[in-house]
């Protein structure tokens, strides 16, 4: 009886998200407010595409799940990097190996890997950096020579530098000049040659990056963020303004239509 009721309608096993009980295998503090959590999640690992996210049920008196982008996949494990912002993410940062997590995934449309060209550049800012790792890995796997430009507030906020360096030329900027190159990612991007851009970070940064890509005449994909409810496109909570093909405004949803969008579609105001 229960089996029959629980049978999903969509049979495509790879595109159909699942609810999985995942065992935490490691939690590590990366910087002041950023944590890395690795969990054993074979059902999710097989589904994970660069730029997708998972929706994690947290304790700490939270009601809604917390959307967290997938940083990396290896074997049957998923690596998540998240920022402690409130009760849910604080609870998550306090997990220990062996703890179980209720996770929905994998969700959303990730980066489109066709059309990246020979020299894609991955531009990340702060907590926007992690989802670019799996994307850069995929670009390299398909024969491209990817590069990364990663921006952080200061030296103490720098994360994942060696992971990116292993995949291609990686430059780090800090707002205060305490590490790497003093300045913003856009300052570097202006002076580089590239065939496409994949970006994730604060909205102001994404807007500036999209403008540079447009001026350079190369395709640009941006990963957006919005307060999220269901995570699967049912509640219509995580609206983001998009330009329709006829120029009109419409609201798409970050969880289902994104989180990755063609920058040309995004209404930045």
């Amino acid at each position: 009886m229960t089996e029959e009721i629980a049978r999903p309608v969509t049979i495509d096993e790879i595109t159909c998200p699942v609810q999985a009980d995942c065992e935490v295998s490691a939690v590590k503090r990366l910087s002041e407010r950023l944590y890395e959590l690795v969990m054993t999640a074979p059902e999710l690992a097989v589904r994970a595409r660069p730029g997708q996210f998972v929706h994690v049920l947290c304790g700490g008196e939270t009601f809604l799940r917390r959307p967290i982008s997938i940083c990396d996949v290896s074997g049957g494990s998923l690596r998540l990097v998240f920022q402690v912002k409130g009760a849910g993410t604080a609870w998550l940062s306090e997990r220990a190996p062996g703890d179980m997590l209720d996770v929905l995934g994998t969700l959303g449309n990730g980066f489109r890997l066709s059309g990246l060209g020979a020299r894609p550049v991955f531009v990340g800012g702060g907590i926007g950096v992690p989802p670019l790792l799996l994307a850069m890995k995929a670009a390299r796997a398909q024969g491209a020579a990817p590069a990364a430009i990663l921006g952080f507030r200061s030296r103490s906020a720098v994360i994942l530098e060696s992971d990116f360096t292993a995949l291609g030329n990686t430059e780090v900027t800090t707002d205060d000049g305490s590490y790497g190159i003093h300045g913003f990612v856009t300052g570097l991007l202006e002076r580089r040659e590239y065939t496409s851009v994949c970006a994730c970070g604060p909205k102001g940064m994404l807007r500036a990056v999209a403008a540079l890509a447009e001026r350079a005449g190369v395709p640009c994909q941006v990963s957006l963020e919005e307060r999220m409810g269901c995570g699967i496109g049912a509640c219509l909570g995580c609206a983001c303004a998009l330009r329709d093909t006829d120029g009109g405004l419409r609201y798409g949803h970050v969880c289902k239509d994104g989180p990755v969008f063609d920058a040309k579609e995004v209404v930045w105001e």
């Binding site: 309608v9 699942v18 509640c235 289902k256």
Partner: peptide
């Protein structure tokens, strides 16, 4: 308002 038109949760159980 919580179930759309059934497509999304139809991935998790049979409506």
């Amino acid at each position: 308002g919580t179930f759309g038109f059934g497509h999304e949760y139809g991935q998790f159980f049979n409506p």
